[in-house]
Simulated scan of single mutants.
Amino acid sequence: MAQVTVRPMSADDANRVLAIYQAGLDGSNASFETTAPTWTAFDAARLPQHRFVAVDGDGAVLGWVAVSPTSTRPVYAGVVEHSVYTDPAARGQGVAGLLLDALITSTEAAGIWTIQSVVFGENTASLRLHQRAGFRVIGVRERVGRHHGRWRDVILLERRSPTI
Results as ranks from 00 to 15, higher is better:
Ala2Gly: 07
Ala2Lys: 01
Val4Phe: 08
Thr5Tyr: 08
Thr5Phe: 10
Pro8Trp: 14
Ser10Phe: 05
Ala11Trp: 00
Asp12Glu: 06
Asp12Leu: 01
Ala14Tyr: 13
Ala14Asn: 11
Arg16Glu: 06
Arg16Ser: 00
Val17Asp: 04
Leu18Lys: 07
Ala19Met: 03
Ile20Cys: 05
Ile20Pro: 02
Tyr21Ala: 04
Ala23Cys: 12
Asp26Thr: 07
Ser28Tyr: 15
Ala30Glu: 05
Ala30His: 04
Ser31Phe: 10
Ser31Glu: 03
Glu33Thr: 04
Ala36Val: 09
Ala36Leu: 09
Ala41Arg: 12
Phe42Leu: 12
Ala44His: 10
Ala45Asn: 04
Arg46Phe: 15
Arg46Tyr: 15
Arg51His: 03
Val53Met: 00
Ala54His: 12
Val55Ala: 13
Val55Pro: 07
Val55Arg: 10
Gly57Asp: 08
Gly57Trp: 07
Asp58Lys: 11
Leu62Asn: 07
Leu62Ile: 06
Gly63Val: 13
Trp64Tyr: 14
Trp64Val: 09
Val65Cys: 09
Ser71Ala: 14
Ser71Thr: 14
Arg73Tyr: 15
Tyr76Ser: 13
Tyr76Glu: 00
Gly78Arg: 06
Ser83Gln: 12
Ser83Tyr: 05
Ser83Ile: 13
Thr86Leu: 06
Thr86Lys: 01
Thr86His: 13
Asp87Gln: 07
Pro88His: 08
Pro88Val: 09
Gln93Glu: 15
Gly94Pro: 05
Val95Thr: 02
Gly97Thr: 04
Gly97Val: 10
Leu98Asn: 09
Leu99Gln: 05
Leu99Met: 06
Leu99Pro: 06
Asp101Lys: 02
Ala102His: 06
Leu103Val: 11
Leu103Ile: 12
Thr105Ala: 04
Thr105Met: 10
Thr105Phe: 02
Ser106Ala: 15
Gly111His: 11
Ile112Phe: 02
Ile112Lys: 05
Trp113Asp: 02
Ile115Trp: 06
Gln116Ser: 13
Gln116Met: 15
Ser117Phe: 02
Val118Cys: 11
Gly121Phe: 11
Glu122Cys: 07
Leu127Val: 11
Arg128Tyr: 00
Arg128Ile: 03
Leu129Asp: 01
Leu129Cys: 00
His130Ala: 02
His130Lys: 03
His130Pro: 05
Gln131His: 08
Gly134Tyr: 01
Phe135Gln: 10
Val137His: 01
Val137Ala: 10
Ile138Leu: 08
Gly139Trp: 02
Arg141Cys: 15
Arg141Asp: 05
Val144His: 04
Val144Asn: 04
Gly149Asn: 11
Arg150Lys: 13
Trp151Cys: 00
Trp151Ser: 09
Trp151Asn: 05
Val154Glu: 09
Leu156Met: 10
Leu156Lys: 03
Arg159Thr: 03
Ser161Trp: 01
Pro162Trp: 00
Pro162Gln: 05
Thr163Pro: 03
